[in-house]
Write a protein that binds this DNA or RNA. Sequence first.
RNA 1: GCGGCGGUCGUCUAGCUUGGACGAGGACGCCGGCCUUCCACGCCGGAGAUCCCGGGUUCAAAUCCCGGCCGCCGCACCA
Length: 581
Amino acid sequence: MWKAMAEDKFEKLIDLAIRRGFFWSSYEIYGGVAGFYDLGPLGTRLKNNIIELWRKHFIQQHQEFVVEIETPVIAPARVFEASGHLEHFTDPVIECLKCKRKYRADQLVEELAGIKAEGMDLKELLEIIEKKNIKCPNCGGPLGNLRYFNLLFETYIGPYSENKGFLRPETAQGMFVSFKRVFQVMRERLPLGIAQIGKVARNEISPRQSIMRLREFTIMELEFFYDPDKPHCPLLEERYSGEKLRILTADAKSRGEERPEEYEALELINEKIIKAPWLVYWMFVSRDFVHNLGISFTDMFFDEKMPHELAHYSKQTFDQLVKVSRWGWIEVSGHAYRYDYDLARHIEFSGQDLAVFKKFEKPTILKEKKVIIDKAGLAKEFRSEISSLMRILESMSNEKLLKVVESSTDVVVIDKFRIPKRYFKVIEVEKKIYGKKYVPHVVEPSFGAERLLYVTLDHAFHESEERVVLKLPPYLAPIQVAVFPLLSRKEFILKAREIHMKLIREGFYVIYDDSGSIGRRYARADEIGVPFAITIDYQTLKDNTVTIRDRDSRKQIRVRIEDLSKILYKGLKGENIFEFV
RNA sequence: GCGGCGGUCGUCUAGCUUGGACGAGGACGCCGGCCUUCCACGCCGGAGAUCCCGGGUUCAAAUCCCGGCCGCCGCACCA
């Protein structure tokens, strides 16, 4: 019964989305292509409003240390070699269930079975591996967990076919690659958050589930950089002390638990349930953001990935799940502790120094023993051989030389040389250290905009008495106000048109409608989630007042036209304008 | 990618088994007009469908057969 209803709801929602213009399959006239969707007029506005709300939560509210940038969709191959995406996304991978080593499944089959395996699908590979009884070449353990990693869209940059490029599968690499520049622009202060909103592409094997799994979609990501020696997050205590997150931990899952439990902010850190305090903080922000899309706390939780499920760059990952009518719990965001993986890899591959220099409050003084060589004495002693001896001595580090000298009594033996110890003197020097270099750690909350669009619609969708009402939070509504003349008579129409234009000039998104009965027009507006409907009636013509109708309660209040904008503005912020009047 | 099921005006659907009277019917929506002081349920009229695409069988295909595309479900996969 429940399931039948739920399926019904999904179908009605998809129908509504197509009919009224939220979204539909792209390239429809050519039969459509799986994984690509157009957003219609309402869908585009709703998505933009969701993005704006994300900006408010993640950037505007943290503007002193979180900034937004924009980087290209196409990147040269080198970037994804460094990021690990090429290695981890392009081939079928199988792992040893015992020692956890990973192998390219096609290479294993070629090497151990002598069968050309390139281009084979998983089923064929698995068949051969089973038939030929291929085991782990390292420990002899059983193989399993065969997976594809082939999500990167390939292209060429310019006219040279060897100049390969890829469409980014996440916006994150743009933030890592340009980290140093942004860090300098932000006057070299940490912590620093770099955010980006943009299109990404993943060549999914088999995208389904409507707009939930796309080959091209919009991602909203924050890469948050901080000093691993100072992982503390003061904002967490300030803002979320005593508040709780619903989490299903990997630990609980391995014990067979299926229900999330509630954890307090400080408990999560003190008990080291979540490895990075800043990750906890952004998960709380994410909880509130998704809540403000109209999703209650009980309809969401964080699901920790099991160790073997972690992406190549992650030390710990939590997916934020939201309950929807058809598919149960679906992921709307990922929260990863990326450690220093990405920056370290870009340092390695680019040869650039992306590390951060941290100045100590006071320079620390380091006492160090240093070997002083009596070069003039050595020259006299060794005469013609002095140049080759000096070359050897200069190639040795201070530590190594110190060790040899200190362990010798009278004669220091280096290579073929026997050097009297008196030519070496060990002195103690003081070295001032002004600071140190380190690679920041990164935590990353990452949201899929189209999934948020879907869950927002799913939770807003209500039916009563055979009519559909999209109970979107007013501040998300694509159309904010509807203006209706009660009757389609000239004097009503003229007045309604006048108010319509006035509201447009004042910045609202407004529709005007005079066709059909008034009830039909209310219903049409309810269906696309217009929160407020203004009706021009007989009394309007007498005293310049109009009614404002509330979408959810259908209640009306009467206000003066001159106060209309002010009241609507309040209503759109989410204040209840129907109570106090 | 594999298997099952499906694809008819904008939407939902009738017809398909047993090929022909289908010039593809209906409802909702849309457009125009009339009537009307408040929640799609007053009346009249109109537009709107190469029956997903391609090929085949046949005198004749929405209907039967083959292939493709897309969707749903299951398996596999899933930053």
